[in-house]
Amino acid sequence: MEYLLPPLGTLTTSMAAMSAGVQPATIRDWVRRGLLARCGGTPKRPIYRLADVEAARYAAKPNRPGQRGTTAA
């Protein structure tokens, strides 16, 4: 069950996405890439620290060849 109100200072995936201005899939991608760590919840309903979400939002993202927004040299 989705948290109606997660513990103070934490966010659900949906709330983290809204806070960072991205889609929930991006939050899950940040976790997969190691830019963001879960701090609790369940495997299907994780929660994240607000400070960690903000840090991941402004972290330098690696660029891959062919990725949108990159220029080919």
Rank of each mutant, 00 (worst) to 15 (best):
K61D: 05
T70G: 05
E54Y: 06
M15D: 09
P46Q: 06
A73M: 11
P43G: 11
S19R: 13
A59E: 04
A16M: 09
A60I: 14
M1S: 13
L50T: 10
P6R: 12
K44A: 11
A20F: 01
G66F: 01
S19C: 10
R38G: 07
L35A: 09
I27M: 00
L11G: 09
R28F: 00
Y48T: 08
R45E: 11
M1R: 14
Y3Q: 10
P62Y: 03
A25G: 12
Y3P: 13
L35F: 15
T12Q: 05
L11R: 15
A51M: 05
A55Y: 02
A37C: 12
R49G: 03
T26Q: 04
R68I: 14
G41Y: 06
K61G: 04
A25K: 06
G21A: 02
D29F: 04
T13Q: 12
K44P: 04
P7W: 07
G66W: 08
A56W: 05
G40W: 03
R49L: 14
T42Q: 09
G69T: 03
A16N: 06
P7T: 06
A20V: 00
R64E: 06
L5A: 15
I27W: 00
Y58T: 15
A56C: 06
I27D: 01
A25Y: 02
L4I: 12
S14V: 09
L35Q: 13
D52T: 07
A72N: 10
L11D: 10
L4S: 14
T13S: 13
L50S: 13
R28H: 08
W30V: 00
G41W: 07
G41H: 03
P24C: 02
L8K: 15
D29P: 00
P6D: 14
Q67Y: 01
K44E: 10
G9Y: 09
Q23P: 00
D29H: 11
G21H: 03
Y48N: 01
P43R: 12
I27Y: 00
Q23L: 09
K61R: 15
A37H: 13
G9H: 15
A20P: 04
N63A: 11
A17V: 05
L5F: 15
S14F: 07
M15A: 13
W30A: 02
A72V: 15
W30Q: 04
R49Y: 12
G66Y: 01
P62D: 08
T42E: 03
L35R: 10
P65A: 06
R38N: 06
G21W: 03
A59D: 02
T12M: 10
R33P: 03
V31C: 07
R33V: 07
R33N: 13
R32Q: 07
A51H: 11
L4Y: 11
A73V: 08
K61T: 07
T71C: 13
A25P: 01
A59P: 09
T12L: 13
A72C: 12
R64V: 08
G66Q: 01
L11K: 14
